[in-house]
Each structure stands twice: as C-alpha cells, then as structure tokens.
Design a binder for these strands. Structure first.
Length: 782
DNA sequence: AGCTGTGGCAGGGAGG
DNA sequence: CCTCCCTGCCAC
C-alpha cells in the first residue's frame, strides 16, 4: 500500500485526528498545552498509511509519527463506511490544497466501495466500548480442535497433497458438541461441512489453542488447495491475515494473526502467555499442561501424541474422536477461566474484545487517556526522552533457617502511593491519570466488597473477573509512567513512586525491629520477619501486623499475607518457605529455575526440604544417590537435558556470531548439528556429550531425542561437576567441616549427622536501632 | 500494528 | 585462575 509522506516533524506541534460529527478530519495545533483547532490549518507530521480493507471497506486508518513510534488507529474509527469515505476525500482535498498539488492518485480508490451494512457497522464499532451491559455468558463462543493425518511423515504438513485434515472437533457455550470426520479422501467435504456449521451456529467468538500459529493457517492452506473459500465472516468474507511480531516475556513471537468479519478470534495459547507474563509459574503452554494446571482436564481422558494421530485414525478412530473433543472442551475451560477480564475490559475500553485479549497493559492504559483527550478535544503530549533511575528496595539481613516467620506486605503499594501523594505525569493536563486511577481503585474495592456478600457462583465468577481485570489496569499505571513509548510517560514521577516505596519499607523495617521482631528479607512491597517473642500464634501475629499498619500514613495499609513454620533465607529474592501444612515452596532463580537440569532441581528441592527439617543425613544420602546414578548412567536423558528457546533464526545466529554481536550458544549448536529446520520460539532440549568435564558449553552438544539409552554418551564428568556446583549453594549454611562431610561420595570415615547444625549468619549490617534488641543468635563470622 | 517497570542471581564465553 | 559482559530466568 502506498504511503503518503508529507511535512516534517516539529517539536512544538502535536497532531490528533478524529471524526467530528461523523465525517471530517481535524488536525490540531498544540499551543502551550491548549488546542488551536482549525479545519483549514494543517500540520502534517504523520504518515497516512496502510488503510486496511475488509470486504472493500476502509476499516481504519493508521497515522504514524515520522519517527516511526506511534500509531493512533483507535482515533480514526468512523461511524460508517460512508463517513469513512467522506473523510478520505476530505483529507485528500486538504492535503492537495496544502501542497497545491493533486495527490489523490496516492490512494487506490478503486477498492473503496459503498455498501454500508450491519457487518460493517459492527466492525466499525471497534473504537467504542462494546458489550455494554452484557454478561460473559451472553456470548456464543465456539471451540475448535483439528486433527491432521500424514501418510508418509510423523507430523503432517499443510502444504503436502498427501496429508489432510481428518477430524474437526467443535463445541460451543450453548452446550453443543460435534465431531466431524472425513471419509477417505474427503477433506474437501469436511471443510465445507465445517464452514456451513460455523455459519449455522453463528458464534460471536471462535476459540482454539494455538489457533493463530496452528489450526487457522492450516485450515486456510487446505481450503486454498481445494479451491474453496473459507468464508466464515458474518458478511460472508474470508478471514483477513497479517503477519505480526510481538514481544512476550522477553522473547520475540512471530505468528500470523487473523480477523474474521463480525467475530472475535481467541487463542488460548496467547491467553496463557499473558497470564504467565505476570506470574511466571507455567512450565509449558501446551493445552495438556495448562488444563492440568487449572484443574480443567477432562476426567480420565487419554492423550494422543502428535506423531501417533495418523496411527489412531487408521486403527482406533473412536479414541481419536474422544481426544479431539476433550481438546475442544479443555480449550473452552481455559477460556472460561482466562477470558473474563478481557470481556469486562471491552465494556470499559475503546478496543474490541478480540483485540483486548492480545494487548498488553500499556496499550490499555493509554486508550483511557486517548479517549478522554479526544472527547475533550485536547492535544496529546509526546513521550518524554530519558529513563527511570530507581526501582524497588530489596535486601536480605540474615541467611539460614528461621522460624516462625510472618509475611506481610503493603496493599497495592505503588497505586496507593500514587493516590495518597497525588503522583501523576506532568504532561497530563486533564488529570486523567489520577481520576482514572481513583475511579478504578474505588470500583475494584466496591466489587470486592460486593463479592464477599455474593452466594450465586456465576455472579461471583463475574465479579471476580471484573475485579481482577481492574487489578490488571490499576497495577499498570505505575509501569506506564516509566514506559519509553507511552505518550504520558514521566520518569521523574516513576522514580518518585519507587523512592517513596523504598522509604516506606525502611520505615517498616525500623518499626518491626523496635518491637523486637527480626526482619529476614524485604522485597519491594513486602517483608518476612520473625515476630517478637511475645507474639505467639496466628491471632497475635495478625494483631501485630495490624499494629504496624496503624503506624503507616493515611491511605496505606500493611496486610497479613502468610505465616510459616520455618524459612530458609539464601540470598536476595531467593528463599524457601515451610508451611504449617508441611509444604515447602522454593523462590528465586538460583533455587528454582527452568535452566537448571531436572536432577539439579530435584537435588535443590529435596536438599532445601531436608535443611528446613534438619534432616542432614538425608541430604548426604541424596547427594550420594545422585552421584551414583550419574556415574553409572542410570538417569534418563530428560533428567540431565536442558531446554532453551530458539529466539532467532539460524541465519541470524550465524551472522551474529560472525559479526561478534553474540556468542555461540549450546542450543543453536545442537540444532545445527542435527541439521533440521527450526521455528522461532521453538523449545529445543539438548545435552552435553564427550569425556572432558571442562568443555566449553557450546561444543559437544546433542539434541535429547538423539540420546540412546543403550549407548548413553552423556558427559558424566560434566554433570558431576554440575552437581557439585549446585551443592556449593548449600555451603553458606554449614561449617566447612560439616559441608565437606555431607557433600562427599565416599564415607571412608563414616557419616554422623548428630553434631550438624545450620549456621545462621548476618549478611547486612542491620539498622542501628535493631542491634540492641536482636532476639536471635547470629554468627557474625561473615 | 499491537511490546509496563527495576533488581538480583547464575552461567557461559572471551580475554587477560 | 580471574574479571567483564551478556543472556536467561526469576521476584515483585
């Protein structure tokens, strides 16, 4: 698509554009924060580019700043296609007269047609809040799972003529379920049946697990091969497809995004990604794992691995049918759990439902600003250049094993500080920031209060989805301040928020110490501490936290968030907790990380458990067992393999290594060695081979599926060394003598755990006031 | 087209 | 050996 590029950037002018009275485009001049608007005056600082068409209609325009950073498509939604066309004509006339040259030839007007209908109206509402007053359950959501067959290869390929879609499982929220199967060579008929069913059931939402990267492109390709239109839009159109690249949790993600006219597409795989972006608790994004994680798996179901699908189709088609239908059901269960917040946000924000499910939090916050500023016809600021300089306060005062332990944290620390101290971006002339934050916070508290009184489960689910969607928004306000691309960013204010938070935490540490409590660890908004001797039992602990809370400024409260039998304090952001239910949970990247091999994770988990319970001889036994099974190749490859993600193409990798931009890395070398193509974002499992324990990591690597248990070639010395590296983490908890005795594989002098105790140490000089009251014994030897 | 932040630990490679 | 730098992963 052609781009109209005109004018030049100018620091003093900012442009906003929106429909007024349905048909005109106005461009504003920013004068000292106020707006001078004119139909005639024109300040062209944007690209008008890439208008997208759905069934011939311009859906929206994109305005792009000349520095390439911002898009304002949500300001450019028109009430009807007629208005949009008028707006285009208007803009072109203006541009032509401004430059005194006809430039209408830049736009391909051939493809703009007049045909306003309900579908177009529906689509064009994307700039407004949708579903106002509706309930989540009012939507008709359809779930889709496809199974594909391959005669010659383990996994089927959309491009191959001899592969086919053989089964489509469908379910919807009206309780309807169906499995379509293909007769021999009947893929075309199957697809036509599928299309007819979508039109008949007419769902508002189509859901699939990994449907953007999986089912949808596959189906589109198969339809293309059979020469049929996948016309499932409400206006009879085929889906619009476009390539997207987004950043999810530090890693680039490439997939083809689809839009179906009049319907929303939901990919539960993407929902999982954004769910995990804040919590980081998921081990995998597979449907199987996620369904299990959310306790949404169909009871007693069987799973058929991808490469066994063809076999089941030939020999046990009924089992495959059950498998496919269970996938559709689990997809629905996942969406039920994860989709609520997006639905209720669609009632509040100027994005449609399907889009909201894909957006990050900054885009959501910004849409609140944009709508308010457009309504008030106020100009928009440019993002500030610079960076944030401070963050949360983190400290650990003692290491070792302690108990009992209380965890307390400040409720919504950053939002509370922003409200009580009236912190808002300086550029926010209309004070949308504070108004919106206060409104959303009040709304959330109100929802949480009403939730307590509710008994009806569906009403509770609804209220909970609403309050958690509000929580997502509220917690994003702070991050928005420090975001480089945010129009209303303000780094100084972001710093003010964090430094006030730090002050508050230091004050709490002092207060706890003055009461003779011992603070173990602090991180950003919460602290773990040993309560004073006279505070015994849960009630007393809660009262104590309430007393501390009463000392804090108005509007800021400290909440009781847990009590533990014992805590192992290792390093900042690294600790373990032993609950009163005897459950142990590890925290922190050095104790619990996907980059640690499975045997290492087991070693750390069990080792920490033993430490918390004082079972020192068990650690010794555990160590010896692991050494033994490594030395005699008794482990499976999955116990010592590592899994990493492919984040760039092999070409980019080789280019990066050659240019010195990046180092060689084991996971890429493993793939290169096995000479196979890889997808971006693919996870590859590999292990180290050879005899030399001191090899550099990127040499002697092999993909895990090439490991043969009859000829185990893993580098035993390397993994033994690795075990000892992990054992080093325990050194700080023991005397040198005890440590040597526990972590040795020969019991020449016998093993005797009776004299072993955990050494508790002070790691940071405590604040002056606390020393006089220290109520635990500490070894200051460090 | 779409992308919230800082702080902290560990491991690997490169080069001394 | 060590230090420096980069990346990955995690806590909040």
């Amino acid at each position: 698509m052609d781009t109209l590029l005109f004018g030049h950037n100018d620091e003093t002018h900012v442009v906003a554009l929106h429909p007024v009275g349905g048909a005109s485009i106005r461009i504003y001049k920013r004068v000292a924060g106020a707006v001078a608007a004119s139909d005639v005056e024109f300040f062209p600082f944007f690209h008008l580019s890439d208008s997208r068409f759905i069934d011939g209609f311009p859906k929206k325009f994109w305005l792009k700043k000349l520095d390439g950073t911002n898009f304002y498509q949500h300001l450019c939604v028109f009430q009807s296609s007629f208005d949009a066309w008028e707006a285009v004509q208007y803009a072109l006339r203006k541009i032509s007269s401004y430059f005194q040259t006809p430039i209408s030839s830049y736009l391909d007007t051939e493809h703009i047609l007049f045909r306003p209908d309900m579908t177009t109206q529906y689509l064009l509402q994307s700039g407004m809040t949708l579903f106002k007053g509706m309930e989540f359950t009012d939507l008709c959501r359809m779930q889709v799972d496809i199974e594909t067959y391959s005669k010659t290869h383990r996994v089927s390929n959309a491009d191959r003529r001899d592969d086919a879609i053989i089964m489509i499982a469908l379910a919807d929220t009206r309780g309807w379920e169906k499995v379509l199967t293909a007769k021999r060579g009947g893929e075309k008929k199957l697809l036509e049946e599928f299309i007819a069913l979508i039109l008949e059931r007419d769902p508002d939402v189509i859901e699939g697990h990994n449907c953007y990267a999986g089912a949808l492109p596959y189906i589109m390709k198969r339809c293309e091969l059979h020469g049929i239109d996948f016309a499932v839009g409400r206006d009879g159109s085929v889906p619009a497809a476009f390539k997207t690249r987004t950043m999810f949790a530090d890693s680039a993600l490439e997939y083809t995004s689809f839009e179906i006219a009049g319907r929303h597409i939901i990919d539960t795989w993407l929902l999982l990604q954004s769910f995990d972006a804040s919590r980081r608790t998921l081990e995998s994004y597979s449907l199987k794992y996620a369904a299990h994680y959310f306790s949404a798996a169909s009871p007693g179901r069987t799973y058929i691995p991808e490469d066994k699908i063809s076999w089941h189709w030939d020999h046990e088609p009924a089992a495959l049918q059950r498998h496919a239908l269970d996938n559709a059901r689990e997809t629905r269960a996942l969406a039920d759990i994860l989709l609520g917040p997006s639905f209720y946000l669609a009632q509040m924000l100027p994005f449609n439902f399907g889009t909201l499910a894909k957006l990050g939090s900054a885009a959501k916050i910004e849409s609140i600003f944009l709508r308010a500023y457009v309504r008030r016809r106020h100009s928009l600021p440019k993002p500030q250049h610079g960076f944030q300089t401070s963050g949360g306060y983190t400290d650990v005062f003692v290491t070792g094993v302690f108990g009992p332990v209380v965890h307390a944290d400040v409720d919504s620390l950053y939002p509370s500080l922003m409200l009580t101290r009236a912190i808002r971006p300086a550029s926010d002339a209309l004070e949308v920031f504070t108004t919106a934050l206060r409104f959303l916070t009040a709304k959330r508290l109100e929802t949480k209060r009403s939730l307590k009184a509710m008994t009806d489960p569906t009403a509770r689910t609804r209220a909970d989805a609403l309050q958690s969607s509000l929580k997502v928004l509220i917690n994003s306000f702070y991050g928005y301040l420090g975001y480089s691309k945010a129009l209303f960013n303000d780094y100084a204010k972001a710093d003010e928020v964090t430094t006030s938070g730090q002050d508050l935490l230091r004050r709490l540490i002092r207060d706890i110490s003055l009461y003779n409590g011992t603070v173990i660890e602090v991180d950003t908004d919460g602290l773990y501490f040993i309560p004073p001797d006279n505070i015994v039992g849960e009630h007393a602990e809660q009262d104590f936290v309430a007393r501390l809370s009463a000392l804090l400024p108005e509007g800021i409260t400290l909440g009781f968030s847990g009590r533990y039998k014992r805590m192992l304090s290792y390093k900042k952001k690294n600790y373990a907790l032993l609950g009163y239910d005897e459950k142990v949970s590890l925290k922190g990247s050095s104790l619990l990380s996907r980059s640690i091999e499975k045997f290492g994770r087991i070693f750390l988990q069990q080792g920490v458990e033993c430490l918390l319970n004082g079972r020192f001889s068990d650690i010794h036994t555990l160590y010896i067992e692991l050494v033994h099974s490594l030395r005699f190749h008794e482990m499976n490859v999955s116990d010592f393999a590592r899994t990493d993600m492919i984040r760039e193409s092999l070409e980019e990798y080789e280019e990066g290594v050659a240019s010195g931009r990046r180092n060689r890395s084991a996971v890429y070398e493993a793939v290169i060695q096995s000479r196979r193509p890889v997808r971006l974002g693919e996870k590859v499992t590999y292990y180290f081979t050879g005899k030399d324990a001191s090899i550099t990591g990127f040499r002697n690597v092999k993909e895990a599926h090439l490991w043969d248990e009859n000829f185990p070639d893993e580098n035993t010395g390397f993994y033994l060394k690795r075990l000892d590296e992990l054992a080093e983490k325990f050194r700080v908890f023991f005397t040198e003598k005890d440590f040597q005795m526990i972590f040795t594989s020969d019991d020449l002098f016998g093993f005797d755990a009776t004299d072993i105790v955990v050494r508790n140490r002070r790691t940071d000089p405590p604040p002056a006031e606390t020393q006089a009251h220290a109520s635990i014994e500490l070894d200051d030897s460090q």
